[in-house]
Amino acid sequence: LVRYRTISKIPQITLNFVDLKGDPFLASPTSDREIIAPKIKERTHNVTEKVTQVLSLGADVLPEYKLQAPRIHRWTILHYSPFKAVWDWLILLLVIYTAVFTPYSAAFLLKETEEGPPATECGYACQPLAVVDLIVDIMFIVDILINFRTTYVNANEEVVSHPGRIAVHYFKGWFLIDMVAAIPFDLLIFGSGSEELIGLLKTARLLRLVRVARKLDRYSEYGAAVLFLLMCTFALIAHWLACIWYAIGNMEQPHMDSRIGWLHNLGDQIGKPYNSSGLGGPSIKDKYVTALYFTFSSLTSVGFGNVSPNTNSEKIFSICVMLIGSLMYASIFGNVSAIIQRLYSGTARYHTQMLRVREFIRFHQIPNPLRQRLEEYFQHAWSYTNGIDMNAVLKGFPECLQADICLHLNRSLLQHCKPFRGATKGCLRALAMKFKTTHAPPGDTLVHAGDLLTALYFISRGSIEILRGDVVVAILGKNDIFGEPLNLYARPGKSNGDVRALTYCDLHKIHR
C-alpha cells in the first residue's frame, strides 16, 4: 500500500512540481520508500527539464536528425535550378540546329562534286560548318556529364541527390541515346576521305529529338503553341524528305545512260545542264529549293507536275512521300480545326451564355430598361472574369491554397485601402477568403433606401454616388468604403439613402 501511494504521487509531482519531503505519510521509514524516492526525484528532475525545454521552444527539443539540413553532394545540380533551365534551352537550340543542318550536310555532301578544292585539302579548321559541328559534339558530351550530376524525382516524389543513384537512373534511361548522339564521328573518321560515311553517321544526332519531343509535351495545353509546333514538325519532315529526294537524284545521276532524272530535267529547265562528264548542272541553292518544293507539294497532295519522278527509285520514294503525307494530314492537320476551336472556345461560351440571357429575357418578357441593365451587367461581368467562376475553380483546392490565391487576387485593395494598413498577414488572409466580388454598370442602383444592410462594401474600381431623395450626399471612388460596420450592432440596419454607380464599378463586399 505504501508503495502504491508513493507511485500514485508521481503525476502530481510531474505537473505541480511538489516535493515529496513535505508529505508526512511518505516520510515513514520503510525500505521500499527509501529505494523508490531517489528514482522519483530523478524522474521528476528529468520531466521538469523536458517541460522547461518545451515551454522555452528551444531548438534542442527536436531530434538531432530533424535539425540537420538535407545534404547535397558537391557538384550536384538541382533539376529545378536556373542554371539547369538555361542549359536545357541551350541544348534545345543545338538539337534544332542539328535537326536542320545534319540531314542537309549528309545529303548535299554525298558524292558532291561542286567546283573547288576537296575538304581534305583545305583542312578541318577552315570549314565553318565542321567547326560548328565540333562545338555541338562537345556541348552534347558536356550535357552527358551534367546529367550524371543532376537530381531527379523518383516514384515516391522524392528528390534524389545521391550521385550513385543518379548515375544508375541515367544509365537506365537516356544515357545510350545521348551517348550515340554525342559521338564525334568527324574526329574519329577525319582524314579518311569518307565524307559520305561521316554525313550518314552524323544523322545519329537526330535521336535527341525524342527527348525534345517529350520536353515539349508540357506545352500541349496551349493551343497556339501546339499549332506552332505542328507546323514546325511538318516543315521539318518536309526538309528531311527534300534532303533524301536530292540524295536519290544525286546518286543516280552519274550512272544513268539517259538523262531522265529530276536533276537533269531541272538543269535543262533553268539552262544549267550537266555536261557529258557529269559536272556542271544547277547550283546547290536551286537543287535544295526545288527538292523542298517537290516534297511540300507531295505532302499537301497538290502535285503540280513541273517536278516529277521519272526513275524507279524516284517513283518509289514519291509513293512513300504520299503515304507520309496522308498520315500527316490525319495526325496534324486533322487537329488544326480542334485547336482553332479551342482557341476561340471563350468567344463561343460568351455567345452561348448571351443567347441564354436573351432567351430568358424573351421568355419572361423583361421590360426594355431592365433588359438593357441585365445585358450590360452580363457584358461587364464577362469582360472582368472571362466567364470563369472563381468560386467553382477554387473549390477543388485546399483552404490554405485558397487563402493564398484570394490574398493575391485582392492584393491591390488590401495594400491601398486604409482600414487594412497594419493588419497582420493572417488577418488579411482571413479577410480575403470572405470577400465576394460584384460588378455594376453605370446607372445601376446597388442599394435602395430602406434596404437591409448586411454587408460592408469596398470599391475596387469606378465611382458611385450616394443620394437622399434627389440630393447627392457624397461621391465615392476607388478604395472608399460604404455599408454597415460589421458586428457593431446586434441587428442589421437599414439604408438611409440610395447608392448608384456612376461608372463601371468593381466592388468587394463582406457579409455579416
Score class of each variant (00 low, 15 high):
Y65P: 05
L67E: 03
Q68E: 06
H79T: 01
H79R: 01
S81N: 04
L90F: 11
L94K: 01
Y104W: 01
F108G: 05
P118F: 04
E121M: 06
E121I: 11
C122I: 01
P128I: 14
D137N: 04
D137V: 01
D143H: 01
T150Q: 01
N154W: 03
N154S: 14
E157V: 13
E158N: 10
S161Y: 13
P163I: 04
F171I: 14
I177C: 14
V180P: 08
V180N: 01
G191Y: 03
S194G: 15
E195L: 13
G199E: 10
T203M: 12
A204T: 05
A213Y: 08
R214H: 08
D217H: 05
E221T: 06
Y222V: 05
A225G: 13
F228A: 09
L230K: 01
I237N: 01
A238Q: 01
H239W: 01
L241R: 01
Y246E: 01
A247Q: 01
G249E: 01
N250P: 01
D257H: 06
Q269R: 03
S277K: 03
G278E: 01
G280Q: 01
A291T: 01
Y293M: 04
T295Y: 01
L299T: 01
G303E: 01
F304M: 04
V307W: 01
S308W: 01
L323C: 05
G325I: 01
S326P: 12
S331A: 11
S331W: 12
N335F: 04
I339M: 04
L343N: 04
L343T: 12
F360V: 01
I366K: 01
N368S: 08
P369L: 03
Q372A: 04
Y384N: 06
Y384G: 05
A392N: 07
A392M: 08
K395F: 04
L409G: 02
S412M: 13
Q415C: 06
C427M: 09
R429P: 01
A430V: 07
A430L: 12
A430H: 15
A432C: 12
M433R: 11
M433P: 04
K434M: 04
F435M: 11
K436M: 11
K436I: 13
T438W: 07
H439I: 07
H439N: 08
D444Q: 07
